[in-house]
Design a protein around this nucleic acid. Structure first.
Lengths: 187, 187
DNA sequence: CTTGCTTGAGTGAATGTTCATTCTGTTTTT
DNA sequence: AAAAACAGAATGAACATTCACTCAAGCAAG
């Protein structure tokens, strides 16, 4: 088994449970089943470990978002496939969802890391929205406004369902939540 | 001048700049212009200080959201007034906006604190959405789904405009962003 | 008014703890 | 046997919290 992977996984587990600020390297080592020194064979510093974890999480999420994604389908289909994948990923992996939120909000993750982590996603989203606007299917807002709108709504809904499902009433299908977003941005 | 207020303000400044995890009490004391011991006259522990800061921030935001809010107006007007206030507050106070996001994402803020901080807001939002559904102006989703949808979209938009306005294209009026949300939830 | 006493807010050096990182010796691999 | 990987104790820095002290304001007695 891959030690580096183990260490990343252990870090994820601990941060999710106790927060970024209470995640000592000694605990990471224990959780990963290795000595403290070993971590430093794979990561220069704790900070690097954390940045790498963020990149790893984003990579995993990006892959899921592109499952069965057909770039040549119509705008509406692409929209529902992509964001449906996104939402389901967030709902199926509550730990990663919480982790991503926590890390995105934290100044310790540098802007460079964030940008590097998100470019792949950006391109796909940009493609969908551009096409939608060209075909006048979508509102003529700046593309970033639309993408931020959808991302914000869906990620917050997923988080809420993950953390406090009892408050949310009977659970809706991803389709119905996507419909809210679609109605918001359609022309 | 109020020392307690000074300390809270200093804490806010430091957390906004360096993050929750790098905000030593010594720095808080320096920023607040007092000795380290003084902080402990007003707050039992660092943790309590942080929880109190969160409550304070939420209180401020809640007040702003209710500016000129007329509970007897029609659903659409109430919606635009309330969420417009919310959005403008987030845009006018980028520091508080970033702070709230960071603190909300962090396990150090207890669920109890969060609930206590948000009840006032919840009631107003609940009122608007309930009425809207009763009048069949709004979609018949669980009320929490609608509120989370709007909150997520607007807060994420505000954050993005605050942090990376250059990426967002020409800035839109609050009205136009609210319209996206309204179109999403209207029946 | 002056003087001396009391009170409690305020201070910041000292304490003990926690933690990232390093280092030395050990085990495993080649 | 050499090299690489590993473990975990040791190190030193950073930090939350404490505590013995200072000082200014209030106040009562002279």
């Amino acid at each position: 088994m891959d030690k580096r992977q183990c260490i990343l996984e252990a870090t994820a587990e601990l941060i999710a449970e106790h927060g970024l600020q209470s995640c000592p390297m000694s605990a990471v080592a224990r959780q990963a089943g290795c000595g403290a020194g070993t971590i430093y064979r794979y990561f220069e510093t704790k900070d690097e470990l954390v940045q790498e974890l963020y990149l790893e999480l984003m990579k995993r999420m990006t892959e899921h978002c592109l499952t069965d994604y057909d770039g040549s389908a119509c705008v509406k289909l692409r929209f529902f496939q992509f964001w449906g994948n996104f939402y389901r990923y967030m709902r199926t992996n509550p730990r990663d969802c919480a982790l991503l939120e926590q890390m995105s909000a934290c100044p310790a993750i540098t802007d460079g890391t964030m940008e590097r982590a998100a470019t792949a996603l950006h391109e796909v989203v940009f493609g969908i929205l551009q096409d939608g606007q060209a075909q006048q299917v979508l509102k003529a807002c700046p593309e970033k406004v639309l993408s931020t709108f959808v991302y914000g709504a869906l990620s917050t809904l997923a988080k809420k369902y993950n953390c406090a499902p009892e408050l949310m009433g009977e659970e809706l299908e991803a389709q119905q939540l996507l419909a809210l977003c679609w109605d918001g941005i359609k022309a």
